[in-house]
Amino acid sequence: MILPLPDGDFQAYLFDCDGTIVDSMPQHHATWRQALAEWGCDLPEELFYAWAGRTVADIVADLNERHGLAMPVGAVAARQVALYQQLLPTAVGVPGVLRHIEDAHGRIPFAVVSGSTRESVTASLSALDLLDRFDVLVCAGDYARPKPDPEGFLLAARLLGVPPQSCLVFEDADLGIQAATAAGMASVRVPQPRRG
């Protein structure tokens, strides 16, 4: 099924990556739990999905505060990415989103705006043979304020040379939809395929 788009003359499509282009949220949750367990910490599924769209640094900082831990962000992030890359062969694309990528590729520019690391986003897109479709990747570390702040989406629009109001955002997370709205962009909510 192809996702319905809002009316408008859009000049660019901006996509979240995990849960939007790649149905990778189950793999990310499993690898987060495995990486955190090595530090005596856990990330329950409900909290994981509630925090979708947040950066690794923010997640680790909040978990450190909640559990009185001092997990190093870089080490936890590197371990999670390494574990995730082992599971990448099991990830699949989100069909309704893939159809829009195929239909519009070459007609309008695309960007990814993700709270994940560039390494993780590149690995996910490469696993689906989609990396070459995207003109711009805006990842964790490229912007200071994470979703729901609009900074990442505004940066992508600027890098593409497209006014924010002419961009259409594809997002699966509440924080991402809020960020798109704050940026003055129309959005399409992508249903999370494996959640009821």
Rank of each mutant, 00 (worst) to 15 (best):
D18Y: 06
V162L: 12
V94K: 03
V76S: 03
S126I: 06
Q27I: 04
S124D: 10
G184W: 08
T20S: 02
D42C: 07
H100R: 06
F110A: 00
G161Q: 09
P44R: 07
F170K: 03
D18N: 10
P4G: 07
C41V: 15
Y49I: 11
S114A: 11
P95E: 00
L154C: 13
A35T: 05
V138I: 15
E38L: 12
A35V: 14
V138L: 02
T31R: 02
L98G: 04
R79H: 07
A78G: 09
D18I: 10
P191E: 03
G19M: 04
F153C: 07
L5N: 06
A179N: 07
A91I: 08
S187C: 14
H105D: 00
A156Y: 01
I2M: 05
L69C: 10
Q85T: 08
R99Q: 08
S120N: 13
H29E: 14
D9M: 04
S116H: 06
L69W: 09
H67F: 13
G68L: 04
H28N: 09
V136W: 00
D58F: 04
R133N: 00
A37K: 14
D142R: 05
D16I: 11
R145N: 12
A179G: 15
G184E: 12
G106H: 01
C139M: 09
A57H: 05
S124C: 15
R54D: 08
M185Q: 14
I2T: 11
A30R: 14
A173S: 15
A180H: 15
A156H: 02
A186T: 10
A157W: 14
L168R: 14
Q178S: 09
D9S: 09
Y84F: 15
A75H: 04
F10W: 15
R158E: 15
G68R: 10
G19S: 04
Q80C: 11
P26R: 08
Q165T: 06
S114G: 08
A75S: 15
G161T: 09
T20G: 06
V162K: 11
H29I: 13
L36A: 10
G176S: 11
E102D: 03
A156C: 05
C17D: 00
R195I: 12
R99S: 02
P150H: 11
F10H: 13
D7F: 03
W39N: 09
R133I: 01
E151V: 12
E65W: 01
A104T: 05
H100C: 07
P193R: 14
R195Q: 14
L87K: 13
Y143K: 11
G93C: 07
P150N: 10
M1N: 12
E171T: 14
V81K: 07
G196W: 04
